[in-house]
Amino acid sequence: MSKKFALIGAAGYIAPRHMKAIKETGNDLVAALDKNDSVGIIDSFFPDADFFTEFERFDRHIDKLRRANGGRAVDYVGICSPNYLHDSHMRFALRSGADAICEKPLVLNPWNIDGLQEIERDTGQKVNTILQLRLHPSIIALREKVQKEQKATKHEVDLTYITSRGHWYLQSWKGDEHKSGGIATNIGVHFYDMLHFIFGELQENVVHHSDDTMAAGYLEYEKARVRWFLSVDYKYVPESAKADGQRTYRSITVDGEEIEFSGGFTDLHTRSYEEILKGNGFGLEENRVAIETVAAIRNASLASLTGDYHPFLKKV
């Protein structure tokens, strides 16, 4: 029997991947919310879904479905709203008798996880999260290799991710650190989760640079030493990538060897939904290390450029 979904944040960049995942898993989107009404994409997936631009009316509608006879209650609420609203929207989902499926970053601060766990216990509902890189075949294979090997020294890892954004970025909520959490939180949190997933517990967190469009630092895990660089500024895209017309550059090297993990990204939301529907979703606790990592980066004092720092910082 198909499940009924609601979606908060239907006009955002990531929402179509959730609509596609709901459709491809054979389920139904019955209601969607966004204060912006540029949501024609809904017609490509669920033209009969009810749509709201005001949270109060959406809340009333979800409550009416819950109270109605005939099994009309929403089973899941997908959350694709701005980062700072994730906490309150997950609370709404749980208190509405639905499980939540929340986009990254789960929350901005680790103590929000504790509060959500209390509400899970109170309601009997569950928060599921999109940690899609944990489902990527290349990442799973690398994790298995690292776990099996007997290595006397730690792996040397360089993580570089540049995803160019236009002038609109800093004028949107994404450019407001209080709403997005800043660059490391907004575009980096799933990479920090990936590093923890592969290389074990985090042992050291050093930040070398942090501003509105770029951040870089050093992380040390049980089995790896990681230099990382994140940016939304096109000027940091390597010339070789620019020559190919690329505005995005993604690279992870382990001991000098490039790990290919760019393919298959667009299908990972559907894979995430499949696992969630089987009861195998990633819950609140799986997110803790990554959220602790980005919160520490956001509040860190900058270290001097000595020792281990990402080579792209020489361009700054």
Rank of each mutant, 00 (worst) to 15 (best):
Y192S: 00
W228S: 01
E222K: 04
Y309I: 07
S304Y: 05
K151R: 15
K4C: 00
D37P: 05
L85T: 13
R288K: 11
T53L: 05
F199T: 01
A241I: 00
D267G: 09
A241F: 04
I22Q: 07
Y13V: 11
Y169N: 12
H209V: 03
N287G: 03
D176R: 12
K223A: 04
L142V: 11
F45Y: 15
N186H: 14
H155M: 05
D122S: 14
L277I: 07
R271G: 00
I42E: 04
S44Q: 14
D37K: 14
Y76G: 06
A100Q: 02
K3A: 14
L313V: 09
D63S: 06
L159Y: 09
I42P: 04
T160K: 07
K174N: 11
G279H: 06
L94N: 06
L133S: 08
G166D: 15
T253Y: 06
G124V: 10
A98Y: 06
G181Y: 05
I259V: 15
L133G: 03
D43V: 00
L33S: 04
Y192D: 01
N299W: 02
R134M: 05
F312Q: 10
W228H: 09
A303W: 06
A184D: 02
S88F: 07
S88Q: 13
A10F: 03
H310E: 04
V232T: 15
H269D: 00
D59R: 12
F261P: 01
G9V: 07
D244K: 14
N83M: 07
I198H: 00
Q150R: 15
V30P: 08
H86K: 04
Y249V: 01
D48H: 14
D99K: 09
A303Q: 13
V39K: 11
P137K: 03
G281V: 08
L313I: 10
D233E: 13
Y76M: 11
M19P: 06
Q132F: 15
W111S: 11
V127M: 06
I8A: 15
E286Y: 02
A68Y: 11
A6V: 08
L29F: 10
E118N: 13
V294R: 02
F282H: 14
K179P: 04
A184R: 02
